[in-house]
Computed example of a mutant assay.
Amino acid sequence: MEQIGKRLRELREGSRLTQTQVAEVVGVQQSRINRYESGKSTPPPEVFVKYADFFDVSMDYLYCRTDKPQGRLYNFQPKVTAAQAIKHKDMKQFVEMCFDPKSPVSKRMKETLLELWKEQLK
């Protein structure tokens, strides 16, 4: 809670606002802002949203999950769906049937084909 309070205080002071002014913006009493900034209590979610909107920062930034005001940027990589997993299983069985298990080249070719198939699913 102390880190969050410090972050809230830094935002307020960086904008040259008083606790009273921020209290008016977020809709709470000045004493609450003091408690938030000192780490004695944590704001409810709706107050965090008002802070984020007013100071134009992300919730990740307010929760101290990142030091970037715009927040974390994720590289979304969806998990394989059930239908894709079934297709992958079917493809694996098909590839196994197509190659001679005794051939050393076949093993590498099977692995390569299956890797290509996995990439196709992404």
Rank of each mutant, 00 (worst) to 15 (best):
Q29I: 00
W117T: 02
V26D: 01
H88M: 15
S106H: 04
C64K: 11
A85G: 10
S106W: 04
S38H: 10
Y36T: 00
K102E: 13
K40Q: 14
E24D: 15
D53R: 13
T66V: 13
E13L: 13
L17Q: 03
K107N: 08
F94T: 14
F76D: 12
Q19I: 02
K110H: 06
V47Q: 00
T20N: 05
G14F: 08
K107Q: 10
K6R: 15
F54V: 03
A23W: 00
E10R: 11
L116Y: 07
V57P: 01
K92T: 12
M1F: 04
S15C: 07
D53V: 06
F76H: 14
V26H: 03
K110S: 09
R12A: 00
Y36G: 02
A23V: 04
P44R: 14
D100W: 05
G5P: 07
S103I: 04
G27F: 04
E24G: 06
K102Q: 11
D67F: 12
Q120C: 12
L62E: 01
K92N: 03
R16W: 03
S38K: 09
E119Y: 12
E37T: 05
P44L: 09
Q93D: 11
L11C: 00
I86E: 13
T112I: 08
F55G: 06
P69R: 11
G5E: 01
I4H: 01
Q93N: 10
S31K: 09
G5S: 07
M59F: 13
V47F: 02
L121T: 03
Q77Y: 12
A23L: 05
F94K: 14
K40N: 12
P101E: 13
L114F: 08
Q84G: 04
F99K: 02
R72Y: 09
E10T: 09
W117S: 08
T20L: 06
D60H: 14
A83P: 01
T18Y: 06
L113F: 11
Y36L: 03
Q29K: 10
K40I: 10
